[in-house]
């Protein structure tokens, strides 16, 4: 069997719902596509730590402090798991971190924006994590089996985050008028990035990640699922979605909405978001400040006990 025949057989296997393990033979195109996808996911978990981390010191009760630290800790743990999946595809973790910090690789659009109030902590944990879990649940069926297995664990933890987020939002909505305004103001700011998060609709005939079943659902399908589950829940809490064009079309069986700003999305994920450079600089600074620790630990044996 020559390489082309081997590749054809491989693609027939994954397109027929077959799974791939790390030590199976795979074509370079498939390996590169999975690596790019998982690396961006890992980067997003790691960068997603930073907006919420800013509130760890500001959590207003003992219960919230514990929940928020634990949530951020989970995200770091997810980054660790995902970098391990990516490493098995042939790229060392240090190289992935270096590329991330150099701005050569991407992370999700939502982590390029600032956080301004405790309302953001609730909206991020509830809705950003909800939008993420909609796509992550679909990834449990990924053709790349190590990724699919990792997503099962991650989805479980993310569901806990959503409960924490909803509880923060619900508490604020049952609070004072200023607290309710805090949530609405946060939702107004986050709605645009949330609608952009799954990306513009792609052509299923040319989307290789979809054809090779690295991901199981298209961008628009994920966005529709997110809207179907969460818009009624947002309304239920007395919040207003800041899109006059939003509504469910019974005839078409889909949500209509104002076209998200795709130019903003492209701009943001290429490192031109409001906090892109500041967050990358924060990572670089902290990575440099702890380099001596890695040098000491990896370079020298421990002193005798």
């Amino acid at each position: 069997m020559d390489d082309q025949e081997r590749a054809d057989a491989f693609y027939a296997h994954v397109m027929g719902g077959g799974k791939v393990e790390a030590d199976d033979w795979m074509p370079d195109d498939y390996r590169a596509a999975v690596l790019k996808f998982v690396e961006m996911h890992a980067n997003s978990e790691l960068m997603g730590v930073l907006p919420e981390r800013e509130w760890i010191l500001r959590a207003p009760t003992l219960k919230r402090k514990l929940a928020l630290t634990s949530k951020v800790q989970d995200e770091v743990g997810h980054a660790q798991l995902l970098y391990r999946v990516a490493e098995d595809l042939g790229k060392p973790r240090e190289q992935m971190l270096a590329d991330l910090m150099a701005g050569k690789t991407k992370f999700h659009n939502v982590f390029h924006y600032p956080t301004r109030s405790w309302g953001d902590v609730g909206i991020i944990a509830w809705l950003v994590d909800a939008a993420a879990i909609v796509s992550q649940q679909a990834l449990r069926d990924s053709s790349y089996a190590p990724y699919a297995r990792t997503m099962k664990k991650i989805c479980w933890e993310e569901s806990v985050h959503i409960m924490h987020g909803r509880d923060v939002v619900l508490t604020l909505m049952n609070g004072t008028s200023r607290q309710r305004e805090m949530v609405q103001e946060a939702l107004d700011r986050w709605w645009g990035p949330l609608m952009q998060m799954h990306g513009p609709p792609t052509d299923p005939a040319t989307d290789r990640d979809l054809i090779w079943k690295i991901k199981a659902k298209g961008n628009e399908q994920l966005r529709q699922e997110f809207l179907s589950i969460y818009v009624p829940r947002i309304w239920e809490l007395g919040l207003t979605v800041p899109d006059a064009g939003l509504g469910y079309d019974e005839v078409e069986g889909r949500w209509h909405y104002t076209e998200p700003d795709w130019a903003e999305l492209r701009n943001v994920v290429t490192g031109h978001g409001p906090m892109s450079q500041e967050r990358l600089e924060f990572r670089r600074t902290n990575h440099a400040a702890t380099q001596w620790v890695r040098d000491a630990v990896l370079g020298a044996p421990s002193a005798a006990a």
Binding site: R53, L57, T69, V76, F282, T290, V293, R294
Partner: peptide, 14 residues
């Protein structure tokens, strides 16, 4: 808790 997210290594971060 300020180290959360920026500890020297991911394993130590957790």
């Amino acid at each position: 808790s300020e180290w959360t997210g920026i500890a020297p290594m991911l394993e130590e971060d957790v």
